[in-house]
């Protein structure tokens, strides 16, 4: 039972971290390596804000917003001018950005492991079963709400529909009068905010440190590819699946191999089903 819950917690954090990444992949068409550093930035923003006296909740909220605007800035200054220069140029610009964020944060905050100043929480106990800490419970709730809002936004709002239209076919979307630049701005804002949120969650459950972005980005990449490049619902499933895989894998392997298990699963899935999990519910039709 507790394995199931740990899996759920691990999986939902992975999901939040990967969602934004997958959105930029889908609409902008490239792998944004800097997304991992946005996670770290979110955690450090929150940390910085608590240092100057904001209560944690408010600091976290502001940090998510800051991340969104930082992402918007990056889109305007760095990525908009090189749109259409090829995937590799965009990908490695994001690698350069990742180095810049990492270096600057490191220069300001130092390389020490840090943590949020929040009280240690006891595990909630129902009857004889130990469930989760209040923090984990809150995270689960927030993830659930966020995913729900994102789903409703993408499915039913005009802006969300525009984003999906651009993601499906940029040229067609232009003809229909949708401005792809505005969509890109919005996607960067949402994706970066989600990254900030994910970073704060990681900080709450673990520590805040300079390498958290690099550690997570490989995992995020894996979740996204496993979910079938850029499929948002595929990513949700993949995040949860990997969360469970890691926790259940611990029954067999030592905990040091926790992430290795996830990578093993990914390699296995890709070798058997190269299109990722998405191929399970999308039949591969082909035009002549």
């Amino acid at each position: 039972m507790d394995i199931f819950i740990y899996g759920l917690v691990t999986g939902s954090i992975l999901l939040i971290c990967a969602l934004g990444f997958s959105m930029t992949l889908k609409t902008e068409g490239f792998i944004n390596v800097a997304h991992g550093q946005m996670l770290m930035l979110g955690a450090y923003y929150a940390l910085g804000l608590t240092y100057i006296g904001f209560p944690f909740i408010i600091a976290a909220f502001l940090s998510v917003l800051f991340c969104g605007f930082t992402g918007l800035l990056f889109q305007r200054v760095l990525f908009k001018p090189i749109k259409g220069n090829g995937i590799l140029v965009q990908l490695f610009t994001s690698v350069g950005l990742a180095y810049m964020i990492n270096g600057l944060v490191g220069a300001i905050a130092g390389k020490r492991m840090l943590s949020f100043d929040i009280p240690i929480a006891r595990v909630i106990k129902v009857g004889d079963v130990y469930l989760v800490t209040p923090y984990e419970f809150m995270i689960l709730v927030i993830v659930l709400i966020t995913v729900l809002i994102l789903h409703l936004f993408l499915q039913y709002s005009i802006l969300g529909k525009n984003i999906r239209a651009v993601a499906d076919n940029q040229e067609l979307a232009k003809i229909r009068g949708i401005n792809p630049d505005r969509c890109s701005d919005l996607v960067w804002f949402i994706a970066s905010s989600l990254a900030g949120l994910g970073g704060i969650f990681l900080g709450i459950l673990g520590a805040v440190h300079l390498n958290m972005g690099w550690q997570q980005i490989v995992m995020i990449l894996s979740v996204t590819v496993l979910g079938g490049l850029g499929s948002i619902y595929g990513v949700m499933l993949a995040g949860l699946l990997l969360g469970f895989a890691m926790e259940f894998g611990l029954l067999v392997f030592s905990s040091n191999y926790r992430t290795a298990i996830a990578f093993g699963v990914i390699i296995l899935v890709l070798v058997i089903r190269p299109e990722g999990l998405q191929s399970l519910w999308q039949s591969k039709g082909r035009e002549n």
């Binding site: 270096g103 490191g106 300079l210």
Partner: peptide
């Protein structure tokens, strides 16, 4: 740390 940022900027 800054030299990592410098590499990023150069890239």
């Amino acid at each position: 740390s800054l030299r990592i940022a410098l590499v990023g900027l150069a890239l």
